[in-house]
């Protein structure tokens, strides 16, 4: 496997919301990004920088403006509906309720997830073999979920639910994993656990990952590449070598140089 094999290419991606009204926002401004296979990219940026919009666009929630291109594994998927993008992309959201069906059991949720991107037919949704797979996938998390396959997801704690969401996003081994502040809603201890689970799964499956976070320390600690966004643009893009040895203060300086603005912690909510 070549180190520099390109997995995702974004070319000339612009996204304008409420075009032609006074609320017009250019959420993404001519983005170009090349993600290599097995990259683990952390993404930081101020509120409204366009991080979520970029992930939504990659996931096909909406198409880019004319001329933009989304290419994954060599397939041009620009403009295809979200459910077609889903064959390539696993996603975990900030709110655990978005990533799981709360009125269904853990088993049913995983049975949905394991068929990502495949044609669903009239076979039984779950069987002994799949239950074994679910158990063996849940067991390493160390949360005891493997013994609770029949529990409704709505009865789990938010940390447990986010762990289930993470397993659902990764169990079918999609080409790309998108994480949007997926630990931001959790208490610090649970956040740490879910973060470690993420690290474990990403490492084990060598999964190409893009993780949005507001925490600069985490952004430096995890992954092999760091992207900073500002006003719809990627203003800083550091590879592993450029990143090593950097401190949070270096990041702040880089932000100020790139954006031409003073770093005001409160306003842009980047946590040290």
């Amino acid at each position: 496997m070549g180190e520099n094999k390109s997995l995702l290419q974004l070319e000339g991606i612009t996204k304008i919301f409420s075009r032609g009204t006074i609320d017009e926002v250019k959420a993404l401004d001519n983005i170009k990004l090349d993600v290599n296979a097995e990259d683990y990219i952390t993404i930081i940026g101020s509120n409204g920088a366009g991080k979520t919009t970029m992930l939504n666009l990659i996931a096909g929630v909406f198409p880019p403006e004319r001329g933009g291109k989304v290419i994954i594994n060599g397939n041009d998927i620009t403009g295809l509906s979200e459910y077609k993008h889903a064959a390539y992309i696993g996603r975990v959201y900030q709110d655990p309720n978005i990533g799981t069906a709360t009125k269904m059991t853990i088993e049913e949720n995983l049975a949905m997830a394991v068929l990502r991107g495949q044609t669903r037919g009239l076979r039984a949704a779950s069987n002994k073999q799949r239950r074994e797979l679910f158990r063996s996938t849940l067991a390493p998390l160390g949360l005891g979920l493997e013994d609770r396959l029949n529990a409704m997801v709505g009865t789990l704690s938010s940390g447990q639910r986010q762990a289930v969401a993470l397993v659902m996003a990764t169990i079918s081994k999609p080409a790309l994993l998108l994480l949007d502040e997926h630990i931001a809603n959790l208490d610090p201890r649970t956040a740490q656990i879910v973060l470690e689970l993420t690290e474990m799964i990403v490492r084990q499956e060598k999964m190409t990952t893009m993780m949005v976070t507001h925490n600069m320390e985490l952004a430096l600690k995890y992954g092999n590449r760091l992207i900073m966004m500002h006003e719809g643009k990627i203003v800083v893009d550091l590879n592993q070598d450029q990143r090593t040895g950097l401190t949070i203060n270096d990041l702040v300086t880089a932000f100020e140089q790139a954006s031409g603005r003073k770093f005001i912690e409160d306003k842009i909510l980047l946590r040290r």
């Binding site: 459910y83 889903a86 990533g99 069906a101 049913e108 997830a113 990502r116 076979r123 039984a124 949704a125």
Partner: peptide, 24 residues
């Protein structure tokens, strides 16, 4: 209880999730 039936049930519970798992 089939794969299609399960997806149908899940669509009523969390449509966004079902779409993000590749179901129309």
């Amino acid at each position: 209880r089939t794969e299609i039936g399960l997806a149908l049930r899940a669509s009523g519970d969390n449509e966004q999730m079902v779409r993000s798992l590749g179901v129309d």
